[in-house]
Design a binder for these strands. Sequence first.
RNA 1: GCCCGAGUGGCGGACUGGCAGACGCGACGGACUCAAAAUCCGUUGUCCGAAAGGGCGUGUGGGUUCGAGUCCCACCUCGGGCACCA
Length: 954
Amino acid sequence: MSENPPTAANSSGPPPHRYTASLAARIESRWQDFWEDNGTFDAPNPAGPLADPGRPAGSEKLFVLDMFPYPSGAGLHVGHPLGYIGTDVFARYKRMKGFNVLHSLGYDSFGLPAEQHAIATGVHPRVNTEQNITNMRRQLRRLGLGHDPRRSVSTTDESFYRWTQWIFLQIFESWYDPAAGRARHINELVAEFESGGRRTDDGRGWADLSPGERRDVLDSHRLVYLSDAPVNWCPGLGTILANEEVTAEGRSDIGNYPVFKRNMKQWVMRITAYADRLIDDLDRLDWPEPIKLMQRNWIGRSEGARVTFSSPAGGIEVFTTRPDTLFGATFMVLSPEHPLVPALTASARRAEVEAYVAAAAAKADADRQDDTKEKTGVFTGATAVNPVNGAGVPVWIADYVLMGYGTGAIMAVPSGDQRDFEFARAHGLPVVATQMPPADWFAARGIEPTADCALWPGAFVGDGTVINSSNDSVSLDGLTSVAEAKSRVNDWLAANSLGEPTTTYRLRDWLFSRQRYWGEPFPVVYDETGRPHAVPESELPVLLPELADFKPTALDPDDSVSDPVPPLARVKEWTRVTLDLGDGPRGYTREVNVMPQWAGSCWYEMRYLDPTNGDAFVDPEVERYWMGPRGAGHTGGVDLYVGGVEHAVLHLLYARFWHKVLFDLGHVSSEEPFHRLYNQGYIQAYAYRDARGQAVPASEVTEKDGTWSWAGETVAREYGKMGKSLKNIVTPDEMYDEFGADTFRLYEMAMGPLDASRPWNTRDVVGMQRFVQRLWRNAVDEDTGESIVSDGAAPDGLRRALHRTIVGVDADMDGLRFNTAIAKLIELNNALTQHVNTHGTAPREVVAAMAQMLSPLCPHLGEELWHRLGNSGTVTYVPFPQADPALLVEDTVEVPVQVNGKVRSRIVVSPSATEQEHLAAALADEKVQAALGGKDPVKTIVVPGRTVNLVVGK
RNA sequence: GCCCGAGUGGCGGACUGGCAGACGCGACGGACUCAAAAUCCGUUGUCCGAAAGGGCGUGUGGGUUCGAGUCCCACCUCGGGCACCA
């Protein structure tokens, strides 16, 4: 490293060698060049092109990962890098602890914003995307992140999406075997059919099927399949959306356009086959409990039973979680879309039923849900039979019963379900109790205990004693346990072939097609019969064709009728292709939809491991090293995955699903992609509006006595995201210019715990700047630039402070508690400052350890100080300081003494003092004696080294 | 409606059931300076008190405990997720 260019001594400016933003900038860019030139953060692989014979991959590895960023055109604001700084500090700390750390960052660069920008400007999305990536790389390089640049990939690279397509084909060429509980290759299914070991659904033999019929059977088993089912059609975006991408208001997550339900033929991934494993394996992951809960809720597993009610139109199957209440089922409700509705409808009621069905169909999902919870419905005129007691139950239809969940039909037990209760009351249907609620239930409602539900104000949900529930061959009466009642009735249903226990999920299969341009093309072609075929692996990647016009055919956001026309459908020369799929060259038509943006992020972390591999998406040995299980029962996966909670269900669920398929097919050794997940908080900001509601520039607002003003006008303050329209954006570039990257990093880490959201406050950054300036001044003379470090031993007190700090900082960094680690470093620096103020020099042992401990947080400053202490090379791999246990032992400890639980005095004792010695010292203390007032303690509690509590009677 | 998470000085935040408020911002005072900035030293939860000292204090109300910010119950407020899921 070269020395600073000496600045001319200026009588008015700061001393020439003060750690100012401009000096920081010079130091920072110098070390950034050094790291780049020396490949400082290149992590060696155990095999392949990224292996390093001079630096074999050690056994202690650590894979640290940030959530895949989208390269936005707007650039970064100070909120974006929070997680990246956190992972960088952790990664750097772990390198100093001897780990082989893999840390890199790529770009999730397909997606709607780039495409919409392209539509607006006419510039190809690839051009725009690459510009954005370049700008983001520049902003992040300036931050000093220790990434391995060789591993940075983009989903839009042909060499990347080739493998996204390859993985799609693996999913396409496989089926889920429920008996084995895992995915298997489709050829194994073919073999089972051919051998006769498996029959087709309609019972015909494999040999009796035409080739086309065989194809249809296989296609119906694949993990990704074509479905002509109701989808979320968003004309405003010109595409369909996954359920997860539609808000509760029935609008698109992106853009907030109306979404309509309609039937379309689309690719769908069979994620529901993995529902159980996706729930059960959560227990083996080190994830925040709320995120696990959100995934469990999203999958929504519920155990219950399917029960068949006979009716004039045949058996009606219902799903219920409470088969024990069957005797209280007094009517049935079918979804208006239920296939049996026309057959069940009595001619006298047909007009009314059809009107209701039509009205329900006309309502968008949102309207159906937005209804004021009023329970509408109509009677079909049909009566079904309750299988447990032969009672006739009227069959109704109502739109609160959803066709997409369970069987689309319910048995209504109004005495045990509030919704059914309200429906029964509204339509004059009978209510029969199957449980006697406990006395306090009645007491709380101010009525006398009675089994007559006509007197009940609402349904009873809870544990009561079963009543009214017996027939000739089974009785539940008298049972007090719901579980036992369920099990008894389930046994009876099974024995009489009336029903069976079953499990239902809220999770639906994943809609995988998008009618867009800027996404991965499907490696799929259609033959003349319209059946899909995989493009051979040798033909990958299927390149996205160049287009001059990226726009899906313009549609009105409220036009729910017109069909989507994907941009690729217009490239006629691309859609027609001649291929030899084993039966000679033939003409095929390409799939013109593209994959959703989630596709690339379902597996990107594995491409970091082996980014240049042209033979496989990742070398199995490399995958095993970085992501393999760490022992029996361990899922394997990334060691630390940091990102925001907004991906709790979508990305994290899809990525887990793909990973499990790859595991089942033997492509990876890990069962889960992300073993430990950590949710960083958000940096938010204040925004200010004037009396007209217009946002005013936040940086120009002044505060006085709790009121804020701008340009002499009082403005209102609100708190939330940073955004252009709120005029409250602060960028990293501004921070680099004003303070330098290290100070900016330090502030982001010091302002609170990594997982908490907090408000940005530029004014507070100066605290961290003062700290680093003071530290700099403790090593370098501000006027001469000379070192003031001395080789003499540090005084005992300072040395002890140093070793206490080492222990604390070590533990804090390991636990991602960077804010308290920084506080401890500041305390040590304050002690060092006092020493420098009195002695004029700083002991080398303290400055060196400070440089090391600081370097994960402020890597440039750490390197610079380390260098100025006379070391060569980088501090990156210098072992973290170790504390000397002998220096951690205190001579004396101060222990508070409480009398009746209130602190009255403090005693000083040896750290090894016994309980008796504590007590003796406490009783001898004047203030304690005064507090005791001459009384003898009736009870004494001594926690050696922590507290003494003397209890005296009042 | 249901399910999570969070409420601590003027502000951001510390805190294994054992001295609440580490560290930082801001504020106040002092040193240095012709002066200002910067820097350094000190004070800073609140109330009573000249002081010594004492009372109160971690959203509210109860409880457990020798001892509660921390554990339990109920409630309030804010943030997030799901929302007719049978």
